[in-house]
Each structure stands twice: as structure tokens, then as C-alpha cells.
Computed example of a mutant assay.
Amino acid sequence: MPKAQETTLEIDLKALKHNFTYLKSKLQSNSKFLAVVKAFGYGSDACKIAQYLQDFNVDYFAVAYVNEGVELRNAGISKPILVLHPQAANFKKLIEHCLEPSLYNAKVLNEFIKIAVEEKQTDYPIHIKFNTGLNRLGFWENDVEYVVSKLKLTQSVKVKSIFSHLAASEDLNEKEFTENQIENFKSISSKFIDAIGYKPMTHICNTSGILNYPGAHFDMVRSGIGLYGFGNSEKENENFKPIATLKTIISQIHLIEKGESVGYNRAFKSDDFLKTATLPIGHADGIGRQYGNGKGFVTINGQKAPIVGNVCMDMIMVNITNIDCKEGDEVIVFDQNNTAETLAEATKTISYELITSISQRVKRVFIK
């Protein structure tokens, strides 16, 4: 790969294919695959990721919001797109772009049916979400009769799937809780299908669900973080390849005398002579202030360089006292060796937060 000349996020499409192929190998033969590309493709670029995966016969895509789905349609994505958290204000736009809403309470169900009728729709595909323990979005099991009664009064919509979301599928200490969620979902699905008179698809598994609960793959599974290279456990991480490498360069090197400070608020004061390198990346690029003051690090010529002082909006300073380097040298913020998960753990957060925070002003380069 070419050396960085500016702050760049490299996306390895070969690694993406590897992750997709690995996850597909875990599925039951009749289970469809939904790729989650919300949040700008987990910080990568949703349109480019979806275009690539569409060629590998992904069955479905999912986004969080309607505008994300519109961007995919404008980029030529023709596969079905599930919108996981649509807002009623965007329902007409959703229909205009043939997106499929997740409906999760009486208010959004009734509002969508109203819009579908106004737009003269017939059998418009919708997805009904049930809450089985995450307690975030979703109808309750005792809402089945109400939902079905509303659906039987209209020809404007038809249920494409019923689904739920696992709360702790990556944590095997919570296996009993997860298995209870799955059994609850089976019960809800059975009641719903009996009442509605036809069989929509059912799905509950996220990436960790795919890996840890093969008996719950049902008609479809949903994967987000796994596609981007993380398996939510040390064991499974060995089977994945992080697709993103965040690189930058050394803009300037400073010699810091004993007693001098570095950065805003004089958060760092040197107790000895040291050398620092200033890098053109900061909290506006996704490297939050929590990574400052020695908690976060970068890699320069194979050696770790801790972040010195507070992270600035557009820059960070790192300690290079014992590193042989010069201005213009490449710097690795994270890659397949020192992963985003490793860096995130330094501040007690998760890879999801770090990779989705990488600003869209950072140049993306796609490597095939």
C-alpha cells in the first residue's frame, strides 16, 4: 500500500469480502443475509460498501434513517433497504425511494398506514419490530393482537418481516438471557403468523448472534460490525480482518525542554527533555479528547507513540523521544495489527464508537 501523504482512511475491500464470506459460511442454507451500512457504513462510506456487497448477492441492506437509504438509492443500490428507525416526517420520502420501514409502536404504525393510503400504495413492504429485552424500540408481545387488527383493516401495507434485537449476544455470561429473548421471539412470531394468516420472514441475530446462536438464524440474519472486521471476542476477532486503516503523517517535530508544556490548557508539562511530533488529525476527525494525555497512541515506524496533552480540533501531539522518525513520515492510528478495538479499549469504549466517528472530511481510499 502507498505511504500516506495526508490523513487518509484506507478501506480494504478484499478484507470486506473475507468477512462477508466468513459470516456467510456460518449461516443455515436458507437464511438470507442483511448487511447493515448505517452511520456512513460504520465510518467507511455506506455507498461504496453497499455497491461492493451488492455484487456478492447480499439479500438486504439496513440503515438507521431515511436519508441514509435515499443516498444508497441515489448511488444505484437496488436491493431492498430496511430503515431501522424512520421518522414519520420522512415517510413520504421513504415511499418515494422504495425503502422499507421498521414500525415499532402504535403511533408510527398508524401514521405509516395513513401515508401509505394517501400515496395509494398496495401491499407496501413493512417490518414489524418486537421488543424482547433490549428495551429500546419495539412492540410488546401483548401488542400482537392490536398490530394484526390494524393490518387487517388495510390493503396498503404487507408485513415483509417481523424481527427483534439481541441485547447481549456477545456475552456468553448472559447466555440464559439471550436464549430467553430467542424463545420469546419464537413465541411472538408464532402468534403473529397464526393471526395474520401468512408467513413474513423472521430475524433476530446480529453479528454475535450469527456466531454464538446458530439455531436462531431463522429466515435472515443482520450483520454490521462483523463486516467491518470485528467479532466481539478475542477468539472470533482472529477470523475477521478489520477493513479500515487510518493513516496520517508527521507535520512537525518539536524539542521540548524540561518544564515546558505541550498543547491547550498546559495539560502536559515535561519533567525531562523529550521530542514530540504534531500530526494533522484531531477531535474533528474522530480522535476524541478522551484519547489525550497518554491514554491513546499511534504507531510510527513500528513503535508506539503516546498522545501528549489534550487532543486539539485538528491536531494531536505524540511523544517520539525514542523513535527514529522525521517530518513527513507515515503514522498509523489504527490498522489490522493495532486495531481500532485496541485503541478504543484504551479509553474504555468500543470499536463501534471510534470507527463511526471518523469524520467525512478524512479522505477515503478504497483498495481492491
Score class of each variant (00 low, 15 high):
Thr342Trp: 15
Ala168His: 09
Glu6Thr: 08
His283Phe: 09
Glu353Trp: 01
Leu99Pro: 05
Gly288Arg: 12
Val333Glu: 01
Phe139Asn: 02
Val144Gln: 04
His127Gly: 11
Lys48Asn: 05
Leu103Ile: 14
Asn206Val: 00
Gly286Ala: 12
Gly209Trp: 02
Gly309Ala: 09
Lys14Leu: 03
Asp271Glu: 06
Val333Lys: 02
Asn110Cys: 04
Ile196Asp: 03
Thr278Ile: 08
Leu354Asn: 10
Asp272Met: 12
Arg136Lys: 12
Ser149Asn: 00
Lys235Trp: 01
Gln51Pro: 06
Lys258His: 05
Val63Cys: 07
Val298Asn: 04
Phe185Thr: 04
Leu84Tyr: 11
Phe91Leu: 00
Ser31Met: 09
Tyr264Trp: 10
Asn184Cys: 10
Asp285Cys: 09
Arg266Glu: 13
Val117Gly: 03
Lys107Leu: 13
Tyr228Met: 14
Ser270Thr: 05
Lys363Gly: 14
Ile320Val: 14
Phe230Ala: 02
Thr356Met: 08
Lys258Phe: 04
Val70Pro: 11
Arg73Val: 14
Leu82Ala: 11
Ala277Thr: 07
Asn301Tyr: 10
Lys129Pro: 01
Val308Ser: 14
Thr8Asp: 03
Gly76Asn: 03
Asn184Ile: 02
Ile332Ala: 06
Ile196Thr: 00
Ser156Gln: 04
Ala88Thr: 15
His18Arg: 10
Trp140Asp: 15
Tyr22Ile: 03
Asn180His: 06
Val298Gly: 09
Tyr42Val: 12
Arg73Tyr: 15
Ala244Asn: 02
Ala75Glu: 08
Ser233Thr: 15
Arg222Ser: 13
Met201Gly: 06
Asn239Cys: 13
Lys247Thr: 03
Lys114Asn: 12
Ala195Tyr: 05
Phe40Ile: 07
Ser169Arg: 04
Glu183Lys: 06
Ile300Pro: 03
Ile193Pro: 14
His254Lys: 01
Gly294Asn: 12
Ile287His: 10
Pro80Ala: 03
Gly294Tyr: 04
Lys363Ile: 10
Gly224Ala: 05
Asp12Ser: 01
Gln28Asn: 09
Lys191Phe: 10
Met220Phe: 06
Gly286Asn: 14
Arg73Leu: 12
Phe334Ala: 05
